[in-house]
């Protein structure tokens, strides 16, 4: 347990260095969000998305509203468009 806390403390000290490439990308391109959820446009940039965006892309994706749990996902159009 002591080793774990020491390791945590050491790596926290190095966090600025290890996260520097991410911070540089944020400053260089003026990014507003983490690239964690790329499945739909309102999940990619939640900080600047519409306030409520249910049914926009994938209704089965993690939604804001309970109704999102009941509507099945849309079929991908024949054209291959998103």
């Amino acid at each position: 347990m002591t080793f774990m806390l020491l390791d945590s403390h050491n790596r926290q000290g190095m966090a600025k260095t290890s996260l520097a490439p991410c911070s540089r990308a944020v400053r260089r391109f003026g990014l507003t969000d983490l690239c964690l959820f790329t499945e739909a446009r309102y999940t990619r940039n939640p900080a600047v998305a519409d306030f409520h965006a249910a049914f926009q892309d994938h209704p089965m994706a993690l939604e804001h509203f309970p109704s999102g749990s009941f509507v099945p996902p849309p079929r991908r159009p024949e054209s291959g468009a998103p």
Binding site: A20, L31, L34
Partner: peptide, 15 residues
């Protein structure tokens, strides 16, 4: 190509 360490902020970026 942006470094692998920047993926958390820019994995899907095309500039």
């Amino acid at each position: 190509i942006l470094p692998q360490e920047s993926e958390l902020a820019a994995a899907d970026l095309v500039v």
